[in-house]
Amino acid sequence: MDDFDMLNAPAAGNGVGSEEDPAAAFLAQQESEIAGIENDEGFSILDSGEVPSSLGDSNGESNGPSDAYAAISNADRLQAEPESLRKWREEQRERLELLDANSRTQESEWKEKAKVELEEWHARQNEQLEKTKTNNRAAEEAMISDLDENNPGTEWERVARLCDFNPKSSKQAKDVSRMRSVLISLKQSPLVR
């Protein structure tokens, strides 16, 4: 049986007896001390005058200081660390609250600015829509009046009015230059029937 099997074996029959495992006791002590630091509880040795059992003798064995003064100084050192952590947490909480407040004010400013810009955009869009409607109605009325006057020989003038022959003002995405050139050539020399 090697040394590691002895730690995991049952207590009966191996000569260890009913003693507690020293490694487990040490780990339990360290975990309780770390839990005290993480919870900011610390050790209240100076308030009550008693030494905690985790710092004193346990079952005749001592993993920590042997006299009470050393235990108190050790506890004071452990208690000073949570105080600094507590101060840091308070400062961090204040900084985060300040950042949150700034973030909320900036967000509300952005929302107000976006609301104003959206209203302006809607106003511009409605204005543009009204202009387009007016232009389309006027163009429709002009086209209807042109259709009513059906004079022979004015066909090409009516076609020329419907086509935009200015290449720079064309709003179309397709190239219509060939169609434009065909219409111009037909206007200049009409087909003879």
Rank of each mutant, 00 (worst) to 15 (best):
D2E: 11
D3W: 07
F4T: 10
L7S: 10
P10W: 02
A11I: 05
A12H: 06
N14M: 06
S18E: 12
E19A: 13
E19L: 09
D21F: 03
P22S: 03
P22I: 02
A24P: 00
A25L: 14
Q30E: 13
E31T: 10
E31C: 04
S32A: 15
S32Q: 14
S32C: 05
S32D: 13
I34P: 00
I34G: 01
I34Q: 10
A35E: 14
N39F: 02
E41G: 10
E41N: 11
E41M: 05
G42E: 00
G42Q: 00
F43N: 02
D47M: 05
S48I: 06
G49V: 04
G49Y: 02
E50A: 12
V51N: 09
V51I: 15
P52D: 09
S53A: 13
S54P: 01
G56H: 03
D57F: 11
S58P: 02
N63K: 13
N63I: 08
N63R: 13
P65T: 04
D67E: 12
A68L: 01
Y69W: 06
A70W: 06
A71N: 01
I72H: 02
D76F: 04
L78I: 12
Q79C: 07
E83W: 04
S84T: 11
W88H: 06
E91I: 02
Q92C: 02
R93F: 07
L99G: 04
D100N: 12
A101D: 15
R104A: 15
Q106C: 05
E107C: 05
E109P: 01
W110C: 04
K113A: 13
V116S: 09
E117H: 03
E119S: 09
E120P: 00
A123P: 00
A123E: 11
R124H: 05
N126D: 15
N126L: 12
E130H: 05
K133P: 01
K133G: 04
K133L: 12
T134E: 12
N135E: 15
A139I: 09
E140C: 05
E141V: 09
D146K: 06
L147S: 04
E149H: 06
N151I: 15
E155K: 08
E155H: 09
W156I: 09
W156D: 07
V159D: 03
A160N: 08
L162S: 12
L162P: 01
D164P: 02
D164F: 06
N166S: 03
P167S: 01
K168R: 11
K171T: 14
V176H: 05
V176W: 10
R180I: 10
S181K: 10
L186N: 13
K187Q: 10
P190R: 03
P190W: 03
R193N: 07
